[in-house]
Amino acid sequence: MAIIRLHDLFAAVMLLGIFSLLSAALFTLMDAVDVAFTEAAVGAGISTILLLGTLALTESEEKPEHNRRAPLALLVVLLTGAVLIYGTLDMPHYGDPAAPIHHYLADRFIESSPQELQIPNMVTSVLASYRGYDTWGETTVIFTAAIGVALGLGARRRSRRQLQEEERENKGGRA
């Protein structure tokens, strides 16, 4: 909540990092150790570094502005939240072993993946083998994002260099 009020973006980024780390601890409590260490490394680590890098390249103070959209946004958020909470009322309870999510595929993965693949960690075997295409698609997404970043930031640098070279040529011509 403090993240909303803070105008110092640096502090907001730090709070987001702490939030990420806390949620990683929460994931460990809920038996999701793989998700927890990915969140700690990627969410708390790399995201924070990326955000700090952006702040270094731009500016680290948010302008205090009175926002005309804020009441409307608050209304939309409260309405959506109320609808979502209404929707959870008939969801299966926390930790309920009879919930539909724990049957069908999950049973099969838990029972047969250790025999089929000889990997004790079921998350690894599902990630790399049963849902291998998913992971392959994920690497494609990362590659595409990397191309996007390179194009967005790299094109500018190149055009600036070309401008400088042209100026130099013009000066050379005059002399």
Binding site: G43, L50, V141, L153
Partner: peptide
Amino acid sequence: SNPLPHVLMLTAIVVGVATTALALSFVVR
């Protein structure tokens, strides 16, 4: 515990960082 949501969320975290990086590069631009 159910391993399937964990697998899906591992993918989601990494994709999320990729989109964050792209968004931040646009901000810098």
